[in-house]
């Protein structure tokens, strides 16, 4: 369904562009760099390729920030902020507990790479939380 509010439409457009860049960049970075022996002095090209997916993640975060600024409807903005709070709380909870387990007993190492996907999954949980408590979820 096409969102009514122009801020949501702009957000989805920006998010789609950043996601497309992310997919291309992560595919290229994994193909070109992953599994190779880490050189003592990485090349400039290698660093740039490795940074590209991160730049795409920053663009996604920027899209979320601009949505909060551009949303002029206070209730819709509240829904989005609550989603981010739930996502942040869940991410802190999971990574903190997992980090302690890594330090004190043996569990598989959680790559920091997974923090952002975990936070995005938390947004979906936040949407469900909004729906259950306020009757509507916010932007899909």
């Amino acid at each position: 369904m096409r969102p009514r509010h122009p801020a949501f439409r702009a957000y989805l457009r920006r998010l789609a562009l950043a996601t497309a860049l992310y997919l291309v960049a992560i595919f290229a970075a994994v193909r070109l760099l992953h599994g190779q022996a880490v050189p003592a002095a990485p090349s400039v090209a290698g660093v740039v390729i490795a940074l590209l997916p991160g730049i795409a993640v920053l663009l996604m975060l920027l899209a979320i920030g601009r949505l909060w600024v551009e949303l002029d409807d206070e209730f819709l903005r509240l829904l989005e902020i609550r989603k981010a709070l739930v996502a942040t709380g869940l991410t802190l909870a999971v990574t903190s507990v997992w980090g302690l387990l890594e330090m004190l007993v043996w569990v598989p190492r959680l790559e920091v790479f997974w923090v952002f996907p975990l936070w995005c999954a938390g947004l979906a949980v936040g949407q469900v939380f909004n729906r259950l408590t306020l009757g509507t979820g916010g932007c899909p």
């Binding site: 009514r4 409807d73 206070e74 209730f75 819709l76 509507t136």
Partner: peptide
């Protein structure tokens, strides 16, 4: 009011208290 239908519904059902300006 220049707000979303969800806002009106949330205020009417008492799930959301509007800001003073609204």
């Amino acid at each position: 009011l220049g707000v979303s239908r969800q806002s009106v519904n949330a205020i009417e059902t008492g799930k959301y208290d509007p800001s003073l300006p609204l």
